[in-house]
């Protein structure tokens, strides 16, 4: 199918496919970060509703190791902060990949005489795999 295309166009299609893969990887990482963030936020919310004297435990492998309420709170707050930063980074990366994809798609359209309307987009469409 791609054998009939000029080499330059073939190269661009390969680049588009690579970008699509990158977009999918970023989407998966974003989903994981979102899920971890929700979990840490929920744990923090739950922590705020309980008494500060409550004995707390931290999971280490299969073990539950006793810890302090304040320590748990600080650690969860740090976790939320770092996951928010990670999520921001991934969102920027997602935008960058999307921009690169669109510009490459434009270049390919020009090469092939403008017949690419409605072509592929990273990870099955802009913003796919997010939420």
């Amino acid at each position: 199918m791609q054998g009939n295309l000029p080499p330059e166009a073939q190269e661009k299609i390969e680049q588009l496919q690579d970008l699509q893969e990158t977009a999918q990887t970023v989407a998966v990482q974003k989903q994981e970060a979102e899920s971890s963030l929700t979990e840490a936020e929920n744990a923090l919310d739950e922590l705020e509703t309980i008494d500060e004297e409550t004995p707390m435990y931290r999971k280490v492998g299969e073990l539950l190791v006793e810890t302090e309420y304040d320590e748990a709170e600080d650690d969860l707050e740090d976790k939320v902060d770092s996951l928010e930063i990670r999520l921001e980074t991934l969102e920027k990366q997602e935008e960058r990949v999307q921009d690169q994809f669109e510009s490459l798609q434009g270049e390919l359209e020009e090469l092939l005489g403008g017949g690419m309307g409605g072509g592929p987009s990273p990870a099955g469409g802009p913003g796919a795999g997010g939420a």
């Binding site: 979990e39 922590l47 931290r58 969860l76």
Partner: peptide
């Protein structure tokens, strides 16, 4: 009773 709160933490209730 120890209940997991998520994100590797659990509390005693």
């Amino acid at each position: 009773v120890i209940v997991e709160l998520g994100a590797d933490y659990a509390g005693e209730f």
